[in-house]
């Protein structure tokens, strides 16, 4: 019984699960030990043993450097800067970016006391000069902290002479103007372009 309680406790710590849903998930696993519980346990153990943080870009993979960094088909002149690995995965899902990435591991935050030394910014500056990158695309979140981070990085990269661009801000696909907030509409109007 102690093992089951321990399992429930650990499951309850996962995002989206509380004590009740953890109990339900545990019961589900217990009922299907061969098809669910053991494969899951093996997958967790294998992932825990294999997962590495890429020493070049900060992404998560089973190899170091990661598959993206060593892929010769990737455009080495473009580097996309993201806050978290989840952001990298989001851009990769689109299949529309041929370059490589750099994961900051967070964002500057006055509130949480996160400064430049807490992020992978020094390694970014080193990469720019060492890898012959010609364009840096800032894909930080459109929040006060995300944009503060983007401006800070722009400032830090100024001496390197690299082109710094950022993602466009505006009306999302399927978005109806009537339902958009005024900040998004303002950004969209400012970023308008000839048709």
């Amino acid at each position: 019984m102690q093992e089951i309680e321990r399992l429930i406790q650990l499951l309850a710590r996962l995002p989206g699960l509380g004590p009740r849903s953890a109990r339900r998930a545990a019961l589900h696993l217990i009922k299907k030990p061969d098809t669910q519980m053991e494969p899951l346990a093996r997958a967790l153990a294998a992932a825990a043993a294999a997962i590495r943080t890429c020493s070049t870009c900060g992404a998560i993979d089973t190899t170091d450097p990661c598959a993206i960094c060593v892929n010769p088909e990737r455009d080495k002149s473009q580097l996309c800067i993201v806050e978290e690995v989840a952001d990298l995965w989001a851009i990769e899902r689109t299949g529309s970016f041929p370059g490589r990435y750099h994961v900051l591991g967070g964002r500057l935050s006055a509130l949480d006391g996160i400064g430049p030394e807490d992020l992978n910014i020094s390694s970014l500056v080193a990469r720019i000069s060492a890898e012959g990158i010609s364009e840096v695309i800032l894909a930080t979140n459109l929040t006060v902290d995300g944009q503060t981070t983007a401006h800070y990085i722009t400032e830090r990269l100024e001496p390197t002479g690299v082109d710094v661009t950022r993602l466009a801000h505006g009306v999302p696909v399927g978005g109806e103007l009537d339902y958009l907030d005024d900040g998004t509409l303002t950004a969209a109007l400012r970023a308008r372009r000839p048709l």
Partner: peptide, 15 residues
């Protein structure tokens, strides 16, 4: 009124 989004482009004003 969304003041924050209006200064996103300007580093000094955002700071």
């Amino acid at each position: 009124f969304g003041y924050a989004a209006r200064v996103f482009d300007r580093a000094d004003r955002l700071a």
